[in-house]
Simulated scan of single mutants.
Amino acid sequence: MRPEIAVLDIQGQYRVYTEFYRAEAAEKTIILINGSLATTASFAQTVRNLHPQFNVVLYDQPYAGKSKAHNSQQRLISKEEEALILLELIERFSCDHVMSFSWGGACTLLALAHQPRQVKTAVVSSFSPVINAPMRDYLERGCQYLAACDRYQVGNLVNDTIGKHLPSLFKRFNYRHVSSLDSHEYAQMHFHIEQVLQRDLERALTGARNIAIPVLFVNGERDEYTTVEDARQFGKHVGNSQFSVIRNAGHFLDMEGKSACDATRDAVLGFLKPAPRGQRKRAYHYPQGNHAMAL
C-alpha cells in the first residue's frame, strides 16, 4: 500500500508534504488531521482501518515532519492559518470527509465553520471543548518544559499523561520522536499551548455553530484529558452532533491495542459507511517507526 506523494504549494506561502492512498474501488475520499506536532506516521493504523473503503489523504503541517524542510520556519503558524491550509487541501483532493485527532480538532472545526461544499461528514476524535484540571496541568507543564527546550521532560510528560495507556513500544516511539524535534517545533508547540490557555479554543467553538454537516465525536472511556463527559458539551455548539465512546481506551484510541483499534474502526466506519453484515474484521498491526505524539 504505497501512497502517491506530492509537496504542494499552498496559498503561495507554504509547501505541504502530502500522501494520497488511492483505492480504485473507493467512491469517497477522507483527509486526516494530526494533533500538534504529530506527523503522517501517527496515522499508520488509521490508514489501515480506512483503506481501501476510502481514498485517504495525509499531510504534514509546514513546520513538522516531511514538510518542514520545504519551509523557512521564520514565523509561527496559528490554528486559523492551519484551517486555511486544510481548506485548500480539501479542495485539491475533493475530500468528502475529514477526521481529526486531538488538537487537530481545533483547526478542523475552524475549517468546517467555512462550510466547505465538498465535505459531507466529519469525525473529531480525542478532543473536548473543556480544558479540565488534568489537561490544564498537562499544558502548563508542557509550556514550562518547551520554553526550556527540555527534551527529556517533554518526552516523559507526554508518555506519563495523555500517553499513559499506550503500549510500551509506542511510548518508545513517542519519546524518540519528541527528542528529535527541532527548536522551531518546540516554539510552535509552545505557541499553540499559549493560544489554548488564553481561551483561543472559544474561537473554534464560536465558529462551530456554523457547521451544518453531521459530526461524530469519538473519545476514549479512560481518557482523563478529553473526557467523554466533556466532549458531549460539543452538542451545545455543533447542531448535528453524534457521540461514540471507545471502551477501555485512553486518549490515543486505535493505538492502544487490538480491542480499542477494532472499536474505533467500527465506530468510524459505522458513521461514515455502514459495513455490510458479515464483513470480515481487519487485523491490528503495530506499525514500525510509528509515533503517537499529539497535544
Rank of each mutant, 00 (worst) to 15 (best):
R2S: 12
I5V: 15
Q11F: 02
Q13I: 09
Y17K: 09
T18E: 04
F20P: 04
Y21K: 03
A23V: 02
L32M: 09
I33Q: 08
L37E: 13
L37A: 11
A38N: 11
T39N: 02
A41L: 09
A41D: 08
R48W: 02
H51D: 01
N55Q: 06
V57D: 03
D60A: 01
Y63Q: 12
Y63W: 11
A64C: 07
Q74H: 09
K79L: 09
E80T: 13
E81S: 07
E82G: 14
L86Q: 13
E88Q: 14
L89G: 06
L89D: 10
F93G: 00
S94Q: 15
C95G: 04
T108M: 09
L109W: 00
L110P: 01
A111M: 07
A113I: 07
Q115S: 12
Q118F: 05
V119S: 01
A122G: 03
V123H: 07
S126F: 01
F127I: 12
P129V: 07
V130G: 06
I131H: 03
Q144L: 12
Y145P: 06
A147R: 15
R151H: 11
Y152W: 08
Q153T: 03
V154P: 03
V154L: 08
D160F: 06
H165K: 11
L169C: 06
F170N: 11
V178N: 00
S180P: 01
S180E: 10
S183C: 07
A187D: 15
I193G: 00
E194R: 14
E194A: 04
Q195T: 09
Q198K: 10
L201T: 15
R203H: 11
A204Y: 03
G207R: 10
R209H: 12
N219I: 06
E221Y: 08
E224S: 08
E224R: 12
Y225Q: 08
V228E: 14
G235S: 09
K236L: 14
K236P: 00
G239H: 13
N240Q: 13
S241G: 12
F243Q: 07
F243L: 00
N248Y: 04
A249T: 06
A249F: 07
L253Y: 11
E256R: 09
C261I: 01
T264A: 03
A267H: 04
V268G: 02
L272I: 13
P274N: 06
K281R: 15
R282T: 13
R282G: 05
A283F: 03
H285M: 11
N290R: 11
